Amino acid sequence: MLYRVEGLVIRSTDYGEGNKIITLLTPTHGKQGVIVRGAKKLKSRYGSLAQLFTYGDFSYYKTGSLGTLNSGEIITSFQELRQGLEGPAYAAYAAELTDRAINDDEAAAYLFHQLKACQIALAEGKDPQIVVRAYEMKVSSAAGYAPLLDECVSCGRQEGPFRFSSTAGGALCSSCKYRDSSALELEETVWKLLRVFSALDLRRLGNIAVRDSSKRQLQLALRRWMDNHLSLNLKSRNFLDQWEKYGDLLGERIKRPEPAAEAETGDGPV
């Protein structure tokens, strides 16, 4: 059967001497594996379609588990995400996270648009740490592991202060914090960002200015959350952790909140 879909290339691997197998995230058919014959050859007609991060229109035949590309056209190459170190590092992490965390039948149109918005934001030069943290919340939600942030997961209390517990499922109030001695005491700015990211459509993400201490807390909270609930060993994250000096943070006790920082989204201050 012949299929025609829009798709984002979230994985591209060599197959045989001159071919590649790409994994597409599509808004209509979830994740799809497609063989692109001759993609590794210098004069390949469709070699550029097999590049990671490419957004294109793909036509392929499929009778078994894999399709075979029939024709295609690039809509957006996202070439910016293949230049330098920072852009490719964050974009590769978002792509691999999507591929590994989401089953084929869980990938839906909403996640496709969130990943595309993530790639657009990275290509536009928005703060990659903030963009990727927001996308991590989207993936966690799509995988069925969204944290509870507006009330205590144990008693339902809605008044803070709270601590963030990856094992308990989100916020723990002062009366229930004993349930997780490793729960994180986060700046109020970080709580606001977590709540904004949970509800935000990334297509509406504006420029956000966040101080480094808040970024580190946000990173640690989401790293712990994803390690506890998704438990993925991602090659791209190993590099990203070195890039963000996460190893130094692991042994660092989170400090008490400093004066609030300003952070803005497309929807206004948070």
Rank of each mutant, 00 (worst) to 15 (best):
Y145K: 02
A134C: 14
S175T: 11
P128K: 05
D104L: 02
E124W: 11
A123C: 12
A117M: 04
D127C: 02
G144I: 08
E187S: 15
S181I: 11
Y110A: 13
G170F: 12
A183R: 07
E151N: 00
Q158P: 00
Y110L: 11
R82W: 05
V132M: 11
S174T: 12
A91T: 09
Y110V: 13
A146Y: 01
R157I: 04
R100V: 10
D99E: 15
K126E: 09
R157H: 07
A92C: 12
A168W: 03
G156Y: 00
A109H: 08
Y110E: 14
E136Q: 14
C118W: 04
G125P: 10
A107T: 02
A101K: 04
L122G: 03
F112H: 01
S181W: 05
K138S: 08
P128R: 09
S181Q: 13
Y90C: 08
E96N: 05
I130P: 03
V131R: 05
G87D: 07
A107F: 02
L111Q: 01
Q83M: 13
G156K: 00
N103F: 13
G169I: 13
G144M: 06
E185M: 01
V139C: 10
E106M: 14
R163H: 14
A108L: 00
A95S: 15
L149K: 13
Q129Y: 03
N103Y: 08
E185D: 07
R163G: 08
R100N: 11
K138Y: 10
A143P: 09
R157E: 13
D104T: 05
L172Q: 06
A117K: 03
Q129T: 08
A101S: 08
S166Q: 15
E185C: 00
L97S: 06
